[in-house]
Design a protein around this nucleic acid. Structure first.
Ligand code: MN
Ligand code: MN
Ligand code: ZN
Ligand code: ZN
Lengths: 151, 151
DNA sequence: TGACAAATAGGATTGAATCCTATATAGGTA
DNA sequence: TACCTATATAGGATTCAATCCTATTTGTCA
């Protein structure tokens, strides 16, 4: 697969460079590799998972850089921290409208898309009390694999 | 306020005793105090906050017991871990249908209730793939106090 | 090409959460 | 009521995610 890259990925990488420049951020190999990995996976990886994978291409990258960069991506809006209940932080660079299901047993986070959830209407009672920066619909339970195993 | 206790709280404490007995759990002063504190607050406290408050009545209680008990409450359905993105676990014993707003700056978690969200319809695409144990609608942003302060 | 602010590596530190185990106790039984 | 035992607790040790610290490196712009 190496060397072959969809136009979509290329476009997003280019958009990312522009986004960094606009935010006054330097384009480092570390940043690019982390963002690229996050773009190409559907796993919603933790910082440690990103670290272990990015090390294949950048053997000297530090875990701190991965953590710092993931938070930077979150800050500039190139990625975000996935919602959940406890456990380690998980990240997502898929900015398209979608929702998440998380298996309580194997911790897998699976995307789904149900259009009616895309823009859940904000009730006025909170619209004029808060600045809403994010709205999520989030499901938890057991995936098919884990239904059978767990009691 | 000490000594005065609403009928509602009394009922819930009694129901909790029954629930513990049904689950084969002993009724300890620690368990009761932790559940009672959680019932009476609207703060969605962390384990540490519960610990510091319950210590007023049980000076020797350990943090481990608080953590263990909160997870037990979550397991038997007497309380739950509040959804969010990172930060420390926060707990809620309010089982009535409601949703949460969390301020990214001051970390306050505020209840609101918008009836249409109570039972968000589960799309079939995931209904037959997963066992859904929990459905949440969650908003994030800045509360009024923090809108002015933060840049 | 040179200067400098920004970013990184890697080790140290923090802090939440869990684990370990000797002791205490809730709640059923005789 | 007094005992018995499985369950629960206290408190210290441990784990692990995440952040901090700082000397060194590097991207970017003039
Ligand atoms: Mn996703
Ligand atoms: Mn609540
Ligand atoms: Zn699973
Ligand atoms: Zn706030």
């Amino acid at each position: 697969m190496t060397g072959i890259q969809s136009t979509d990925i290329k476009n997003k990488l280019h958009a990312f460079c522009v986004q960094c420049k606009n935010a006054g951020l330097k384009m480092t190999p570390q940043r690019l590799a982390i963002y690229k990995y996050l773009l190409e996976t559907v796993e919603h990886p933790s910082a440690d998972t990103v670290f272990r994978n990015v090390r294949h291409t950048l053997p000297n990258i530090s875990l701190d850089t991965v953590n710092r960069t993931l938070l930077t991506l979150n800050r500039i809006g190139a990625a975000f921290v996935v919602e959940g209940t406890g456990d380690v932080k998980r990240f997502d660079a898929n900015l398209e409208d979608h929702q998440h299901f998380k298996c309580l047993n194997c911790k897998r986070i699976i995307d789904f898309h149900h259009a009616p959830f895309d823009n859940v209407e904000i009730p006025t009672c909170i619209k004029d009390q808060f600045t809403i920066l994010r709205k999520t619909v989030y499901f938890e339970g057991l995936c098919k694999d884990c239904q059978s195993i767990s009691t």
